[in-house]
């Protein structure tokens, strides 16, 4: 059954306490199951004190669910959610250091690229978009000499009207209240 399942791109967002070493704990969930991480970013979340990891992987539907459960098993992880690309708004940012030339400047204008720095010899460009967009610009610039290229990991915002993390936190608070009341009774 699983052999027939096809690999797709998934975005896993993980919310955790801000604890040293947790990044390593999360990445080993993937490495020990031989799943390649396509991109990974970490940052604060909208909730004070809670950290957010955005992880992009290519794998099958059943495997990705199991990965999420294994990540959630880490004591300091609050929640791991799995999304398909269409369920999120995602962006990456790419920077390019390119030799200056007339053609490059034409491209800059045509592709609405931000210029971050201009020197006599080179120009530093910034493009935000998904991987195919930033990759396309790289291919166009390549003939004119790209000296450096760097692309960030994916950051993603979930489209859903529900705020899953907040729901989880409220549910936890409710249960804790219940437990405390049970104990005092």
């Amino acid at each position: 059954m699983e052999a027939m399942e096809k690999e797709q791109e998934y975005i896993i967002t993980v919310f955790s306490e801000n604890k040293v070493g947790l990044l390593n704990q999360i990445t080993t969930v993937f490495t020990c199951r031989n799943v390649n991480i396509e991109s990974l970013t970490t940052s604060e979340s909208a909730v004070l004190g809670i950290h957010k990891f955005t992880i992009v992987v290519r794998t099958t539907a059943s495997k990705v669910e199991r990965l999420a459960r294994q990540i959630e098993k880490k004591i300091d992880v609050l929640k791991a959610f799995v999304f398909r690309p269409e369920e999120v708004v995602q962006q990456e940012i790419a920077l390019y250091k390119v030799t200056r030339s007339h053609n490059v400047e034409l491209l800059v204008r045509r592709y609405n690229v931000r210029v971050l720095e201009i020197d006599d010899d080179y120009i530093v460009l910034e493009k935000t978009g998904d991987k195919s967009e930033t990759g396309e610009l790289f291919d166009l610039l390549r003939p004119y000499g790209v000296q450096q290229f760097v692309r960030s990991g994916t950051v993603a915002i979930i489209k859903s009207r529900r705020e899953l993390l907040n729901e989880y936190l409220r549910e936890r608070e409710r249960l804790e209240e219940l437990e405390k009341r049970e104990q005092t009774i």
Binding site: E17, L78, Q183
Partner: peptide, 12 residues
Amino acid sequence: ITSIRSYVPSCA
């Protein structure tokens, strides 16, 4: 300790 925010030992 009787609970940790990030850890659900068993669900109802």
